[in-house]
Design a binder for these strands. Structure first.
Length: 336
DNA sequence: AATTTTGACAACCGCCGGATC
DNA sequence: TGATCCGGCGGTTGTCAAAAT
């Protein structure tokens, strides 16, 4: 039955690692293949749990760890990705070469969260009054993350499986009167419109009508978390973001070249591929036919072209996409 | 100068999903 | 098929140094 016991808890050392322990672990890992964390403590002569060794290596000893303060660009990336994906630190870390999820988590908790706190409200608290409701900034799918979806599904017995569900979801998130910034291009709803269930139908029909169209024609603007304009300027600055030269780190320590800016010359197919990854990450694919997934081409998570009917593509236009990398999808799991 | 408070970050804890037996 | 393990992940805690009193 099963495997052998994980690790002997008795006698395992806790608390900070000493330089000698670091040296032992580093030495062992550099001389041997990394196959079994469970076995490493014993083999390396450490009174540590394998898990502890793994954490120490991944978060501190790894040679490709980038030390020092986070740059403004990195912080902007974290902010944007956190906004987009929630506390998926490992996913966020995969977009920041040399940074670990633990480090990013710490930075978020100690710096960024506090910095944004006065202005930013959580998705669930977006229903509170917006101090400046008439100033929706850039659009994004900021609030359509898995937390939103899960909470809404839980609270409202709602399952996101169709464009109708998505429309319901979005209205559920944004329909507070004071927050009614959502609009479909060419249609400017009043606050009352937003309250009306017809707006759900309107949105649903819009989403449905977008099937098969270029997603640039299908822009739906949603309110944006108000982040400092300077951050936006950084986010908008292509040069600030990850470039192929600093592509994400993969397990062998090398960089890949998969990273590119959304909206760059590599074209829309890549953008859609990225979106496909994103959708998968936040489970927006819902009940998508498995065969349809298999048909996706050679890019991204499934390596493919995102079908036109996919939900997030309908919510985004090329110009609203942040310039994130898509490494986590394009090159497999990063090493933590 | 001594003490208290605050901030930063390394490390731990517990849960989960997939793999293995 | 079910029990168990392993690796990964996110949340939380503990420790230490710097800043404030």
């Amino acid at each position: 039955m099963g495997r052998g016991p994980c690790c002997e808890k008795v006698g395992l050392k806790k608390r900070p690692w000493t330089p000698a322990e670091d040296m032992k672990l580093t030495d062992y890992i550099q001389k041997h293949r990394l196959e079994n964390w469970h076995a490493i403590p014993k083999l390396a002569g450490l009174l540590r749990c394998g898990k502890s060794c793994r954490l120490r290596w991944i978060n501190y000893l790894r040679p490709d760890i980038k030390r020092g303060n986070f740059t403004q660009e990195e912080e902007a990336t974290i902010i944007k990705l956190q906004e987009l994906m929630g506390n998926k630190w490992s996913k966020i870390a995969s977009c920041l070469p040399g940074r670990t999820d633990n480090e990013i988590k710490n930075v978020w908790n100690t710096h960024l969260k506090k910095r944004l706190a006065p202005k930013e409200s959580s998705p669930s608290s977006n229903k509170t009054k917006d101090p400046n409701p008439s100033s929706p900034s850039k659009s994004s799918i900021s609030y359509v993350n898995d937390d939103n979806i899960k909470n809404l599904e839980k609270n409202n017995s709602l399952k996101v499986e169709s464009s109708r569900d998505l429309a319901n979801l979005m209205t559920e998130i944004f329909m507070e009167p004071d927050q009614c910034n959502m609009r479909i291009e060419g249609h400017e709803p009043s606050v009352d419109d937003c309250r009306e269930s017809s707006s759900i139908s309107s949105l649903e029909s819009h989403i449905t009508s977008c099937e098969g169209k270029n997603n640039q024609d299908c822009l739906i603007q949603v309110p944006e978390i108000p982040i400092d304009s300077e951050i936006w300027s950084m986010v908008d600055d292509d040069s600030c973001f990850l470039t192929p030269e600093v592509g994400p780190v993969v397990e062998d320590g090398a960089h890949n070249n998969a990273t590119s800016s959304i909206g760059d010359s590599k074209g829309e197919g890549e953008t859609k591929g990225w979106l496909g990854c994103l959708e998968e990450e936040i489970d927006l694919w819902g009940t998508m036919d498995a065969n349809a997934v298999k048909q996706l081409g050679p890019w991204g998570c499934h390596g493919g072209v995102v079908e036109e009917f996919d939900p997030v593509s309908l919510l985004l236009s090329k110009e609203t996409l942040p310039t994130f990398c898509h490494e986590s999808c394009a090159s497999g799991p990063s090493m933590r």
